[in-house]
Nucleic acid binder design. Structure first.
Length: 183
DNA sequence: GTTCCGATGCTT
DNA sequence: AGCATCGGAACG
């Protein structure tokens, strides 16, 4: 699989579920650390009761309402940094959460190193200082894949408070991949 | 194998 | 008060 093609603003400026599905198998690159994306979740606009966009554009979430292809990194449970990519048309408030990566280079060879959204950022050295970055330039970016993986689709994790929106099938993963989260 | 719980700090 | 989590302890 060639992984040299950096994904562009236009690539990310499509509906979150489409981008999410196509991100599986792509490479997430931060400097000399690279992981293959094997699990993601799509978060829609303010109408999505599981999304951080549900309160509209706040100081934390305003980046979600900006142009696609920017990072949205926030602190979860006081401990874990979460890495998202803004998608869709400007103003929509969409993003895709990267939930798991498999080591490709610079991460060692334990498939559990990037299994879980908090572990993705720890493995790749991403924190809130990487919030609002333009992934179309700089050392943090995503590179395309050539071969689509076997795709799993199901409900998002950890959003039970969102009622019916928790049951929407907006989580995508590489089926049977050892770096995908268990539950 | 399962369930429970504390850590830890930012957000509304 | 609640949270887009994790790792360890306790239990069976």
């Amino acid at each position: 699989m060639a992984r040299t093609e950096r994904l562009t603003h236009a690539w990310f400026a499509r509906p979150a579920p489409i981008v999410a599905r196509e991100l599986i198998g792509c490479a997430l690159v931060h400097g000399d650390r690279t992981g293959m994306i094997v699990e993601v979740e799509a978060y829609l606009g303010p109408h999505d009761k599981a999304s951080h966009a549900r309160f509209g554009a706040t100081p934390r979430t305003s980046v979600m309402f900006g142009p696609a292809g920017r990072s949205y990194v926030y602190l979860c449970y006081g401990i874990h940094e979460m890495f998202n990519i803004v998608t869709g048309d400007e103003g929509h408030g969409e993003a895709v959460l990267i939930r798991a990566v498999a080591p490709l280079s610079g991460l060692g060879d334990d498939p559990r190193i990037g299994r879980g959204p908090g572990k993705v950022t720890r493995a790749l050295g991403i924190d809130r200082s990487h919030d609002r970055r333009d992934l179309a330039r700089g050392e943090l970016y995503v590179a395309a894949h050539e071969v689509p993986p076997k795709l799993g689709i199901g409900p998002r994790i950890g959003v039970d408070y969102a009622g019916a929106w928790a049951r929407r099938r907006l989580r995508f993963w590489w089926r049977d991949h050892p770096a995908v989260t268990k539950p």
